[in-house]
Amino acid sequence: MSQQSSPCVPGLFTEEGGARVLGNRCVTCNTPYFPKASACHNPRCTESKMEDAAFGGKGVIWSYSVADFPPPPPHKFDKPFKPYVIGVIDMENGLRIVGQLVDPLEKVQVGAKVELVIAPVYHEDDKAYTSWKFKLV
């Protein structure tokens, strides 16, 4: 498959040097943000000091659900629609993040270990549009 691929929204994630989402972190209180926050939102933080950070690697499934029906626009999906699992992942880097799982429902469990990957969410004009997802490890 030499199909071209492109991020479904540019500037949010990268595959260079490993799959990671691009956010930032407040150096003062260590709060991670994705997408990037213009300032720290932690009311108990004494000074907002934002520094770019990329978040990838491993985490555990805090919980998950299933899109049994296609979500309304602006979601885009390949037809015919196939239900997919959505995970809420507690990552080792301190970020709790939502993302699709590439694995089927039967294999998914709360507490299971996953890693962040970049994978297609839909195809248009022979091109794959990608997003961050999670994969059981």
């Binding site: 479904c8 929204v9 997408p35 659900s65 296609p70 979500p71 979601h75 885009k76 939502v98 969410v121």
Partner: peptide, 9 residues
């Protein structure tokens, strides 16, 4: 972003 990148109804 939540809908386009994840699709969370």
């Amino acid at each position: 972003l939540r809908q386009r990148c994840v699709g969370m109804p």
